[in-house]
Amino acid sequence: MKKLLKEPLVHFFLIGAVLFVVYGLVNERSNNEDIIVDKEDVAHMAELWQLQWHRPPTAEELQGLIDRYVEQEVLYREALKLNLDHNDEIVKRRLAQKMEFLGNDLSTMVAPATEENVLAFYEKHKDNYQSDYVYSFKQIIFTGDHHQNPMVAAKNILKEKENLTAEQLKEAGDAFPLNFEFTNVDSFYINRELGDGVAEQLKTLETGRWDGPIVSGFGVHLVYIEKQIKPKIQPFEDVREKVTADYEYQMENDGKEAILNELKKKYHVIIKSEAIASKELAQNKTE
Results as ranks from 00 to 15, higher is better:
residue 168 Q to N: 11
residue 35 I to Q: 07
residue 38 D to I: 05
residue 241 E to I: 11
residue 197 G to R: 12
residue 4 L to I: 15
residue 160 E to C: 05
residue 85 D to C: 04
residue 156 N to V: 10
residue 221 H to L: 13
residue 264 K to N: 13
residue 219 G to A: 06
residue 8 P to H: 07
residue 87 N to L: 13
residue 260 L to W: 01
residue 270 I to N: 10
residue 54 H to D: 15
residue 96 A to P: 00
residue 99 M to N: 13
residue 158 L to W: 09
residue 269 V to F: 09
residue 253 N to F: 13
residue 202 L to A: 08
residue 277 A to D: 14
residue 247 Y to V: 11
residue 123 E to H: 11
residue 246 D to G: 09
residue 226 E to R: 08
residue 120 A to G: 02
residue 144 G to K: 15
residue 175 A to C: 05
residue 229 I to D: 15
residue 280 E to P: 01
residue 30 S to E: 14
residue 132 D to Q: 10
residue 51 L to T: 14
residue 11 H to C: 03
residue 65 L to N: 01
residue 90 I to L: 12
residue 201 Q to F: 03
residue 166 A to N: 07
residue 258 A to I: 04
residue 100 E to H: 11
residue 136 S to W: 04
residue 29 R to G: 07
residue 228 Q to P: 01
residue 68 R to C: 00
residue 189 Y to V: 02
residue 36 I to G: 06
residue 223 V to L: 03
residue 166 A to W: 14
residue 134 V to F: 02
residue 101 F to H: 10
residue 17 A to Y: 00
residue 44 H to L: 15
residue 246 D to P: 13
residue 141 I to V: 15
residue 226 E to A: 12
residue 173 G to F: 09
residue 172 A to K: 06
residue 250 Q to P: 01
residue 127 D to N: 10
residue 83 N to P: 04
residue 97 Q to V: 03
residue 134 V to E: 03
residue 41 D to E: 13
residue 249 Y to V: 02
residue 215 V to M: 08
residue 126 K to P: 03
residue 64 G to K: 04
residue 121 F to V: 07
residue 248 E to L: 14
residue 27 N to I: 09
residue 139 Q to N: 14
residue 39 K to F: 03
residue 65 L to F: 02
residue 45 M to Y: 05
residue 166 A to C: 09
residue 211 D to L: 10
residue 35 I to M: 05
residue 252 E to P: 04
residue 261 N to C: 01
residue 250 Q to E: 13
residue 275 A to W: 00
residue 246 D to M: 01
residue 133 Y to T: 05
residue 78 E to T: 06
residue 145 D to T: 15
residue 163 N to F: 04
residue 192 R to G: 06
residue 182 F to W: 02
residue 276 I to H: 08
residue 283 Q to D: 07
residue 197 G to C: 09
residue 207 T to N: 06
residue 264 K to D: 11
residue 254 D to Q: 13
residue 283 Q to L: 08
residue 35 I to N: 07
residue 178 L to D: 07
residue 12 F to N: 00
residue 223 V to G: 12
residue 168 Q to T: 08
